[in-house]
Design a binder for these strands. Structure first.
Lengths: 146, 146
DNA sequence: CTGCATCCTAAGTGATACTG
DNA sequence: CAGTATCACTTAGGATGCAG
C-alpha cells in the first residue's frame, strides 16, 4: 500500500454522486456540535463528574474542583442548569443555601462522562509514556537535523 | 429536609479526621485533569470521533470538520500524536501525502467518545427544550421583577 | 453564602502568507 | 498537499468589589 496507488483511501464517510456523506452531522452550526462543545467543556465535565447522585453546595463544589474560580463555577452551573442537566435548589434560609444536583437527564450524561474519566485514569500511564517517547523522538530528530 | 437542619448534606466525598476524601483526584495539577482537558477539547473530540478504524488525510479531515482552521487541525493532530492516540504516516510521494489513523490506544478512547456523541445526538431535543423553558422562566421572572 | 458586574490579562483562534 | 510563521482579534478566565 506504500507504492503510490492512492486511489481511494479508507474513508470514514463515503462519496455519493460527488456529494460527501459522513457518518454524522459535522456542520459547525449543527446543534450536536454546539451541545458537544458545551458539555465537553473543561469545567462542565468536572462538575458533572462530581455531581453523582448527590447534591452539593456552591462552596463544596468550589472546594472540590481545585483551580476553578467563583466566576467560572457560577457560569458553568448556570449553563448546566439551562441545559436541564443540573437542578438548582435555593433554600430560603440565612445565610443563603443553594444545592445543586443532577437531573435525570444529567444523570444519564454522568455515566458517559464517568466512563471518559475512568478511561483517562486507566490510561494516563500510556499517555505519559507516549508523550515522553514523542518528545524524545522530536529532540533526536532536531539533533540530527542540526 | 427544607426546615433548616443542614448538618451534613449529601456529599459526594466524605470527611475523615477533618480531611476531605474525594472520589477522585481533583487537583488542578493532577495528570488526569490535564489529560481530560486535552481530550475533552472541542477539536480533539471531533477528530477522534471521525477517525474510526480508518485513516484520513489532512485535507479530508479538514473538509469533514466544518469550521476548523488549518492551524487548529495541525495543532490538534500534533497533540493527539504526541499523546499516542493518533498515528501519523508520511508517504514519500509528490505531492506529499500524510495519513492519520487511531492507534489502539486511540481506538479505545474512540468508543468512549462515540458514546458521548451518541448520547448528545439522542438527547439534543431534551436539551433544546430545557433551554427554551429556562429562557422563558428567566424572561418571566425579569418581567415580574420589573 | 451565593453570585453578579467590572476590569484586565492571557490564551485560543482565524486569516494570510510563505516553505518543503 | 501538508504544513509552519506571523499578526490581529476574540474569548476565556482570574481578581476584585459589591449586593441579596
Amino acid at each position: 500500500m506504500e507504492d503510490g496507488t492512492f486511489e481511494s483511501p479508507g474513508n470514514c464517510g463515503y462519496t455519493e454522486n460527488g456529494f460527501d456523506v459522513t457518518l454524522w452531522d459535522s456542520r459547525a452550526d449543527c446543534e450536536v456540535r454546539q451541545i458537544l462543545d458545551r458539555i465537553a467543556d473543561k469545567w462542565s465535565l468536572l462538575v458533572i463528574a462530581l455531581l453523582d447522585q448527590c447534591s452539593m453546595r456552591f462552596t463544596e463544589l468550589r472546594r472540590e474542583i481545585d483551580g476553578i474560580s467563583q466566576r467560572m463555577l457560577a457560569r458553568t452551573l448556570r449553563q448546566l442548569e439551562r441545559d436541564g442537566l443540573v437542578k438548582r435548589t435555593v433554600h430560603p434560609v440565612v445565610p443563603p443555601r443553594v444545592d445543586y444536583e443532577l437531573t435525570p437527564l444529567g444523570a444519564g450524561l454522568h455515566s458517559t462522562i464517568k466512563a471518559l474519566v475512568t478511561w483517562t485514569e486507566e490510561h494516563q500511564g500510556q499517555i505519559a509514556a507516549a508523550r515522553t517517547a514523542y518528545d524524545a523522538r522530536v529532540a533526536a530528530e532536531s539533533e540530527a537535523g542540526a
